[in-house]
Structures are given as C-alpha cells and as structure tokens.
C-alpha cells in the first residue's frame, strides 16, 4: 500500500497506523520511546519520594498542608476525560471519518488546555501563598521537577496535536498521516498514565502524610 494512495471507507485498512512500513516503524519506535519515558518518570518519582517533606526548617509548608484535593480531583477528571475523547478520535480515524476525528481531537486539546490552566493556577498559588518554590527546599525542587515535567509533557502534547490538526486539515486521512495521529494519541494516553501515579503518589499520599 502506498502512503499517498486515496482511500474510501471501504478500502481503508483495519489497522491504518501499521499498514505501511513507515507506520510500522513509527509504532515500534514510539513504544521504545515510551519505555524510556517510563524510566525517566520513575527516576523523578524516586527522587520525589526520597525528598518528600525534606525542608530546612519548620517555616516551610509540608505536603499535608499544601495540597488541595478538590483542585487535584478536577484536574484528574479533565485529563481522564481527555484520554477518552482521544480514544473517540482514534475510533473515527479507524472508521475513515476525518471530520469527527478532528472534532474529538479538538475536544481533547480543550480538556488538556483546561488541565494545564489548573496546574498553572496551582503552582502560582503555592509560590505566592506558601512560598513553596523551586529553590525553597529539596521538597520544592523534587515536587516541581516531577509535576512540572508532566505539565511540560501536556504542553508539548497539546502543541503536537494542534500542529497535526492544522497541518492535515485540508489533506484528509491517508496512510501518511494516520500513523502520526495514532502515535500522538498514544503519547496523550501515556501522559494520563503518568498522571494517575502523580495524583496517587504525590497528592493522595501527600494528604495521608
């Protein structure tokens, strides 16, 4: 199958993301990258757990008094729902429905942007209300590195998906861009996987003490 070939819903392959050699390579290479990302985030989690609540004196706020569960819960729901909407996008990609795929990717981007907005508000709040900054303590450094790295991934993912949507807006679906959309959605799910551990290990365990 040629990457430039024109398709209809009838001739569209069942696994368009892996129908070409390039698609197969992207799929494999991307999963290798996700394996590496797992190690990266695990080392940041390990650092955070080792340095949690390690502050120079009693004036610094500890995790228990810092975190706000309703805010984290709202952020979690936004990101989890955005994961489902990107599943919808890939469902329409496999059914060769370009418009609906774009629509659901758009919803995903909006939810992701709302999540990022909440995170920026949260960091701003910690810095100004609690003087919990990147340089205030080892706890602060470990916290902002871990959660900020995840936020950076969200920002990058948003730019990636928006770029793909604009770049291919007039092109429609073909075997050249189907693997690109698929891989971007895998990245988005992976961001949610990391967030599940962040809300559990950082926020919920932080509240337990």
């Amino acid at each position: 199958m040629q990457a430039e070939e024109k398709f209809t819903a009838e001739t569209w392959p069942t696994a368009p993301e892996r129908a070409t050699l390039e698609g197969k390579n992207k799929f494999l290479g991307f999963w290798l990258f996700l394996g590496g990302e797992t190690v990266l985030f695990a080392s940041l989690f390990a650092t955070y757990l080792a340095l949690k609540d390690k502050v120079p004196n009693a004036e610094h706020t500890l995790a228990k008094d810092l975190f706000d569960l309703p805010l984290v819960f709202a952020a979690t729901m936004l990101l989890l729902t955005s994961s489902l909407t990107s599943v919808y996008a890939m469902h329409h990609m496999k059914n060769f429905n370009f418009k609906k795929m774009q629509l659901w990717l758009g919803v995903t981007v909006l939810l992701g942007a709302a999540f990022l907005g909440l995170e920026i508000y949260e960091f701003n709040h910690y810095v100004h209300e609690y003087h919990h900054t990147f340089t205030s303590s080892a706890f602060g450094t470990a916290f902002y590195t871990l959660v900020g790295f995840h936020g950076g991934h969200v920002a990058f993912g948003l730019l990636w998906i928006v770029t793909l949507m604009i770049r291919n807006s007039k092109r429609g679906l073909n075997l050249y861009n189907a693997p690109k959309f698929y891989v971007a959605s895998l990245y988005w799910h992976f961001i949610d996987v990391v967030w599940v551990f962040i809300f559990t290990v950082v926020y919920l365990m932080g509240m337990v003490g």
């Binding site: 394996g35 590496g36 190690v39 695990a42 390990a46």
Partner: peptide
C-alpha cells in the same frame, strides 16, 4: 514497556 517498568522499579527501590 515492561523493560522500562523493571528499570524504573529498581530505581524506586534503590532511592
């Protein structure tokens, strides 16, 4: 993925 998880788990355990 599981190779990543294995290395990550050892890192966590060590730290």
């Amino acid at each position: 993925l599981y190779s990543g998880v294995l290395v990550g788990a050892i890192t966590l355990l060590a730290f």
